[in-house]
Structure formats: C-alpha cells, structure tokens
Amino acid sequence: MPELPEVEVSRLGIDPHVRGQIIQQFIVRNASLRWPVDLRLQETLKNATITHTARRGKYLILYCACEDDAQGALLIHLGMSGSVRIVAPDTPAQKHDHIDWVFETHRLRYHDPRRFGSVIWHDLAVGDLNLHPRLLSLGIEPFDDAFTGEYFYQHSRNRSQAIKVALLAGDIVVGVGNIYASEVLFRCKIHPETSTKSLTLAQSKRIAAQVKIVLQAAIDKGGSTLKDFVNSDGKSGYFQMHYNVYDRAGEPCTVCGRAIQRIVQAQRATYFCAHCQPATQ
C-alpha cells in the first residue's frame, strides 16, 4: 500500500502538471473502485480549473474551481496498488487505467489494478474538507508544528495497545505506515510490543522526532524519482531506502549484529532487534 511519503512524492510529481490546468474532460472508464466514482463528475468537472493540490494523510487532494463557480475537492486514495502519473494525450489506456483528467497538452491518469482506491468529490459549500467522513478521524499531520513529543505523550495516556499498533492506527498521528513504524521504533530503541500508555515523556519526544526524520528521509529519497511521473509505466513501489530492520528478519542488526526478529501485530509484520529494543517488564 502506498504510504504517506509515496503519496506526497506523487503530489509533488504531478503538481506542476495539474495546478492551474483546465479539465477539458473527466473520463471514467471503470467507476467500480472501493467506493463507486460518481459519474456525474464527468459533467461537474468539465472546464473546471485545478487551483492547487494538497495531501491529508494518505489522501491526495485536487482543489477545483468549477465552471458554475462551485468550489470542491477531489479526494484520491491510491488503495493497495494505485498510482497517478502524467501521460501524453495520445497514450493508449491500459487495462487498469480507470480515470483520466484530460488537459490541453497532457493527461493525468489514475491506475489501480486491485481497485481498492477511491476518487471522491467534496463540495466545499457543504462544509470544511477536514470534516469529510474519510478525514474526520485522522490524527495530526506528522509535519505539523503542533506534533511534538508532548502532544504524542498527552494523546497516548489512555492507549493500552502496543506502540507499533498505535502508530499504525493513525488517530494520534497519520502516515506512519508499517515500514516506517518499525524503523521509527528501532531508532528510538523501543520494543514494538511496549504498551503505549507506559511510554515516558522522553520516549514520546524521541518518537515524535524520529517520525518526522524518517518520513522526511523517505520523501527526500523519492524526490529523485519525480521524473517518473511523466510518461511513466505506472508501476509503483516503496523507495529503495536503507532499512535498519524492515524486511530483514534473520539478518544482522546494523548496530549490534544480532539477528533481526519478526513478529505479527494487528495482522502486519513487525521487525525489530530484541537487543537494541529490549522488552519492558
């Protein structure tokens, strides 16, 4: 599943090609995504201008000014295997290319083999976008200045679940997916099964700091792939970062040399070093 850094790099990649562009056509080839695409959007978005892009959690957002002066936003989720890319206007659609935004000189194309993603319209006249049901329960953004160790500590006091599971939940802070949660906890020297409410303020400060560092490093790593969003083949995947623990079960720890261990938490694989991240009693 594309994580927050992948979504942010997607946004950065397409933004110069869609911001200020007029949508000549909104083509829906297959509306059967996780939630059905509203086919009325083919008329609503005709001649609409994409004013700017944004991101909330793992949602890519396209703000639109419509021809009838209506203002709205498209919430785009990439699901398990989706991607967006810029293609030339004459690029043939492939089997899983479900949606096109057609501009004068190019197209934005939504590709989703498993169709677990979504493209949802929110009319801003109805209310604030952050009050949309898909966004309402999301936690604070990791790069928000308000996300500090103190914030994490205060919002974790009533959470008895394991810290790895709490990070994945996304209702304290968004965007710390499975890969990055394992990496953050390794850097913080915190065992993934540690009860969230048992964390000290000092540990909470380390977690908040490392969340920002690890996610920003992933975004920076993805920056070199921005060119791939123009005439790309639509393939997506995680950035080829150097991981200390993720997907390295049985391999030596980069710090102490002992074997990395793997456990399953909330049906997701967790990787850690039992020596560098000792369990608390």
Rank of each mutant, 00 (worst) to 15 (best):
D15M: 05
D68V: 04
A169E: 06
C66T: 14
E104T: 15
Q261V: 06
E141A: 12
D128P: 12
A65N: 11
Q281L: 12
V9L: 04
T49G: 03
T280Q: 15
A217M: 10
A54F: 12
R107W: 04
G175I: 00
H52Y: 10
F272W: 06
E6G: 00
A249K: 13
V173Y: 00
P142L: 04
R56C: 04
D112E: 09
R114Y: 06
R262M: 07
L75G: 08
G139V: 01
H275M: 10
T44F: 12
R85Y: 07
G257I: 06
H52G: 15
I207V: 05
N178T: 04
K58Q: 04
P5N: 08
V37I: 11
P2E: 06
D233E: 11
P92M: 11
I27V: 07
A73I: 12
L129N: 04
V7E: 07
L129Q: 08
F186K: 01
V119Q: 02
T105N: 13
D38S: 14
L74F: 05
G234W: 06
Y180R: 00
P278T: 09
R109N: 03
G223V: 06
G223A: 10
S81F: 15
P16H: 03
K189W: 12
H17V: 12
G117N: 09
C66K: 03
I99R: 01
S198M: 15
Q203K: 00
N30P: 04
D38A: 10
H111E: 11
C256Q: 14
V119A: 03
R134T: 13
G223P: 07
C273L: 06
S182N: 09
G79F: 10
V165L: 09
L131V: 14
P278R: 05
Q210V: 14
Q161P: 08
L129C: 07
E104G: 15
M1P: 09
P5H: 07
D68N: 07
G13Q: 03
L129I: 14
A65F: 14
H275P: 13
A218S: 06
W35K: 14
A249C: 14
V173D: 00
I190D: 00
Q21N: 14
P142D: 11
S204R: 00
L4W: 01
W101A: 03
Q154E: 12
S10F: 05
E251F: 15
P252F: 07
Y180E: 02
H106W: 09
Q265N: 13
A249S: 13
Q94A: 14
F186L: 06
G20W: 02
V102N: 02
I120H: 01
A125K: 07
L199K: 00
L60E: 02
R29V: 08
